[in-house]
Design a protein around this nucleic acid. Structure first.
Lengths: 186, 186, 186, 186
DNA sequence: CGATAACCGAGACGGTACGTCCGGTCTTGGA
DNA sequence: TCCAAGACCGGACGTACCGTCTCGGTTATCG
């Protein structure tokens, strides 16, 4: 007979509650521990037992999604760097535009500004691997200073998204990739 | 005869208090309206009369600094685009490293994530002009899609600063400028 | 040519505002200086110049009404003590039931509990004369300890009104007067 | 093993604080929720959780005293109505003169003027029973309209106390009882 | 008639208290 | 043994009034 481990069930409920709240309360509601507990039908203490802050809950929910989901954005490697970067950028932007993902990331980004520990974890567990993957793909194409180029590639996308300067359109994406390619200089 | 410009005096006191608090309470203290009022020796209502949130105070303080200070970072125009961009990047990074400026901008950036109105003002009054100035300088040098290139220039700097991926050093800066120049393609 | 003295005009406006506010905000609204000033279309300072508290405004308004109004309840003296007391009680109760008067008196009574100066003025200028008049009428009828009897007459009316134990009806009033007459004992 | 009855303890602390504050801040201090919480060493929210206003706290404290204290003023029944009323009046006046009781009742009476709910509870739970007890005692002595006579007895005492017209002395008390007896008319 | 002072509206200001929300900790009672 | 339920202290929220103050713009007496 299977006894469901209450803890995992609880964990899932809390994650779901955090995602929902981040989604519909984006901008307005500040996403509180109390709110998450209430939405998850769980006592506050249960939430505090496992996570120290709303940011930690969000981060954990994000990690869980990464693990679950097989459809994570992955750096393609077809041999043609230009088309691979285009596909990658399109994938990243698609993810950033997904309402749930967007709400989650914006809420989390706000928390990162005032939580150094969380920020470090974010860099190590999410950002780092992503940048490394891109950097590795560039290295394989013989690009020098591949880490810096990876940042050149990702930076403007992040900048546009975070500060909402202008919406993403496909012309911009392809022009951006072309500029990256040119910047490599052979 | 002394004419007290009561309002301006108050405004200055609040600005000063916000700057100080953003400075030494960076990370730890969450910069509260109550705290600002107390530090400024001013009643809470006086703060609320003029600003709806801590973010608004910070933003206003930042604007006041921009107006006051003649030493704002300005886009140089020596005729040599490469050296001008290098000077500009160095200036921007210097500003981002200034403890006071840094504390201010980080606190403000956190607030921007959950305050759409403030975010819009920030884009229009601070970011926009900066990007425009860079874009104009690029146009004068005959660079096409100068707005996009300006973002390509600024984006990675902002990315590194916000996510603290790696510190800025002079090698990176000059390599970054070179990549930008190459990306223009002719 | 008659030049209206601005001050009296102001005084009248403030009185009117206080009466209106006491009337419709009875129970709910706590009758504030700020509210009175706003309702009177007068600056706060103008109110404070002439009265130290809301209670003082109410009291002054009440005094002004007493002076103005010729129809004040007065102790009748027809020679028949019994019918005179009945007329007096009926008049007093009628006044207490008048919505404006009632609102005014209840608001004022509440203030009296926490303002000793105001309470003393109230006793001396309003209550005292009323009790004295009744006492005098009783004396003229040869009633001993007329002051105490006056209180015996007034006390239960006030008690019923203030604590709202039961509504006044005419049977009670005449029975009350009969009891007072009997209590005199010759 | 110690089981802390947390709630009751809190309740007691709040009651004690309210009594103390009503006592020494009588007249001057307006008895605030914040003050009660501070004096009780309790958070504001804890006070608001259980009572909606200072009046409610006072009323509850008064009720608790009534329940505790065996020495409540009680209507005596020796068979001699006159001496029983005298004892009763003396007891009531003694209680009204007790500084703690007086402070409590005056503060509460002020609140009653602007809180209809509280006023109703006061009538039903404290005044009503008192008047009923007196009325019952009068009925047993064959007094007609005993409820009205009870009010005739209590009204002037309350009137003197509330408006502080004159201090109570024993001559007045016995004269008052005599007048009540005479008013019954056989 | 034009100066001069008093009065007034408007409302900023330093405060105190309001009543609410949330952060974290701790206790209790039922499963 | 675990956990929901929720009381509890603390602190910030944003608002309402308090009573004081300065500011301009009328009035209305007086030189």
């Amino acid at each position: 007979m299977l006894l469901l481990m209450a803890r995992d069930q609880t964990r899932a409920k809390v994650h779901a509650a955090a995602l929902l709240l981040a989604l519909d309360a984006n901008g307005a509601g500040p996403l509180t521990m109390e709110g998450i507990a209430a939405r998850a039908g769980v006592s506050k203490q249960t939430v505090y037992r496992s996570w120290p802050s709303t940011g930690a809950v969000l981060f954990d929910a994000l990690l869980a999604r990464s693990a679950d989901e097989s459809g994570r954005v992955v750096v393609p490697n077809s041999g043609d760097l230009s088309s691979d970067l285009l596909a990658l950028a399109t994938g990243m932007i698609g993810e950033l535009k997904d309402p749930l993902e967007e709400a989650l990331l914006r809420a989390l980004t706000a928390d990162l500004q005032s939580d150094a520990v969380l920020a470090a974890q974010y860099r190590e567990l999410l950002l780092g691997p992503q940048l490394s993957a891109i950097s590795t793909r560039l290295s394989e194409a013989g690009v020098p200073a591949s880490g810096d180029v990876a940042e050149l590639f990702v930076g403007p996308i992040f900048y546009r998204w975070l500060l909402r300067t202008r919406p993403f359109d496909s012309e911009w994406v392809s022009a951006h990739v072309e500029r990256i390619i040119r910047s490599i200089g052979r």
